[in-house]
Amino acid sequence: MSWRSLKFWGVMLVILGFIGLLAFGLTSDPKKVPSPLLGKMAPDFSVTSLDGKSSLKLSELKGIPVVLNFWGSWCPECTREAPVLEAFYQRYDKGQNKVRVLGIAFQDTPSRAKAFAKRFGKNYFLALDDDEGSIALNYGLYGAPETFFIDPKGIIRFKQVGGVTPDLLLEQLESML
């Protein structure tokens, strides 16, 4: 290969590299970078249920997979996934005790969260994050809905940004059992 064509291909390589980087930057969503919490112990928290009747400490649920869903009454996508999560709860949590489904509302008020839960017939354990958003910040949330799949050892195995689907819930449950 002559020096001239070597130079040509060198320049082409640099240009194509820059175009590739630009295309990657423009087409990838920076918010969908893998969570640094994957493979780590789920941050522990204690909450009182939205109806005030019971309380829960996450670390006490070890031994059973947990589907931890973050939601808000202000979130449009949460309305679409609410019936999916409720059906999943009815079948695998309440029905078979294979999993615990938890819903933590954040940046919300008790009255709005309760109204939302009532409207969509949510029966699984629901609670409200504190005003400082301690749980949301501890889980590195970007928005709602986001769902964490925590295995029986308390390790976060998967994080879903956006609404959950029946296929995703079943696939993740299968991988955690």
Binding site: P34, P36, L137, N138
Partner: peptide
């Protein structure tokens, strides 16, 4: 607003700038 409040809370509790950065990087990357 919540991140600002958390930063202020940590700083007033005596955390260094590096510790505050590490806290958020650990959770958000």
């Amino acid at each position: 607003v919540q991140i600002r409040n958390k930063i202020e809370e940590m700083l007033r509790a005596g955390a260094s700038d590096d510790e505050i950065r590490a806290y958020f990087v650990e959770r958000y990357g």
